[in-house]
Simulated assay, not measured.
Amino acid sequence: MAYEVKGVVARSKGAPVTVETIIVPDPGPGEAVVDVQACGVCATDLHYREGTITDQYPFLLGHEAAGTVAAVGAGVTNVAVGDFVILNWRAVCGQCRACLKGELQYCFNTHNAAQQMTLTDGTALSPALGIGAFTEKTLVHSGQCTPVDPAAPATAAGLLGCGVMAGVGAAINTAGVRRGESVAVFGCGGVGDAAIAGAKLAGAATIVAVDIDDRKLEWARRFGATHTVNSKATDAVAAVKAATGGFGADVTIDAVGHPAVFEQAFYARDLAGRVVLVGVPAPDMTITLPLLEVFGRGGAIKSSWYGDCLPSRDFPMLVDLYRQGRFPLEDFVTEAIGLDDVEEAFDNLRRGEVLRSVVVLDK
Rank of each mutant, 00 (worst) to 15 (best):
Tyr3Gln: 12
Glu4Val: 14
Lys6Asn: 15
Gly7Leu: 09
Gly7Ala: 11
Val17Pro: 03
Val17Met: 01
Thr18Asp: 01
Thr18Val: 11
Ile22Glu: 03
Val24Leu: 05
Pro25Asp: 06
Pro29Phe: 05
Val33Ser: 03
Gln37Leu: 15
Cys42Asp: 08
Thr44Ser: 15
Thr44His: 06
Asp45Ala: 09
His47Trp: 04
Thr52Ile: 12
Asp55Thr: 12
Asp55Trp: 04
His63Met: 11
Glu64Pro: 12
Val69Ile: 14
Ala70Gln: 11
Val72Pro: 05
Asn78Pro: 04
Asn78His: 11
Asn78Ile: 03
Ala80Lys: 15
Val85Trp: 01
Val85Pro: 02
Ile86Pro: 04
Ile86Gly: 02
Leu87Gly: 02
Cys96Asn: 04
Arg97Gly: 05
Cys99Thr: 09
Cys99Gln: 08
Leu100Ser: 13
Lys101Ser: 15
Leu104Lys: 12
Leu104Val: 12
Gln105Phe: 14
Gln105Cys: 12
Tyr106Glu: 11
Phe108Leu: 15
Asn109Ile: 05
His111Met: 13
Ala113His: 09
Thr120Ser: 15
Asp121Phe: 13
Thr123Lys: 08
Leu125Trp: 04
Ala128Pro: 04
Gly132Ser: 07
Glu136Asp: 10
Lys137Gln: 15
Leu139Phe: 10
Val140Leu: 10
His141Asn: 15
His141Glu: 09
Ser142Asn: 13
Gly143Arg: 12
Gly143Trp: 07
Gly143Cys: 08
Cys145Tyr: 10
Cys145Asp: 12
Thr146Ile: 15
Ala152Thr: 07
Ala152Tyr: 02
Ala157Met: 04
Gly158Ser: 09
Leu159Cys: 08
Leu159His: 09
Leu160Ala: 06
Val168Pro: 03
Ala170Met: 08
Ala171Asp: 08
Asn173Arg: 11
Arg178Ala: 15
Val183Phe: 06
Val183Arg: 04
Ala184Cys: 08
Gly189Asp: 10
Val191His: 08
Asp193Glu: 13
Ala194Gly: 11
Ala194Arg: 07
Ile196Arg: 06
Ala205Tyr: 00
Thr206Ile: 14
Val208Pro: 05
Asp213Ala: 13
Arg215Leu: 14
Ala220Gln: 06
Arg222Gln: 15
Asn230Met: 09
Asn230Pro: 04
Lys232Trp: 00
Lys232Ala: 13
Ala233Cys: 05
Asp235Gln: 04
Asp235Met: 02
Val237Asp: 03
Ala238Cys: 02
Val240Ile: 15
Ala242Gly: 11
Gly248Ala: 08
Ala249Leu: 06
Thr252Ala: 11
Ala255His: 05
Ala260Leu: 14
Asp270Glu: 14
Leu289His: 06
Leu289Trp: 06
Leu291Cys: 06
Leu291Asp: 05
Arg297Gln: 14
Arg297Tyr: 08
Gly298His: 05
Gly299Leu: 07
Ala300Asn: 07
Ile301Pro: 00
Lys302Cys: 14
Ser303Tyr: 02
Trp305Pro: 01
Trp305Cys: 07
Trp305Tyr: 13
Tyr306Leu: 13
Pro311Thr: 09
Ser312Met: 06
Phe315Leu: 03
Pro316Asp: 07
Leu318Trp: 06
Leu318Arg: 00
Val319Asp: 01
Val319Gln: 03
Leu321Ser: 01
Tyr322Trp: 07
Arg323His: 03
Arg323Cys: 04
Arg326His: 09
Pro328Gly: 04
Pro328Asp: 07
Leu329Gly: 02
Val333Ala: 02
Asp340Phe: 00
Asp347Ala: 13
Asn348Gly: 01
Leu349Trp: 00
Gly352Phe: 01
Val354Met: 05
Asp362Tyr: 00
Asp362Ala: 14
Asp362Val: 06
Lys363Phe: 05
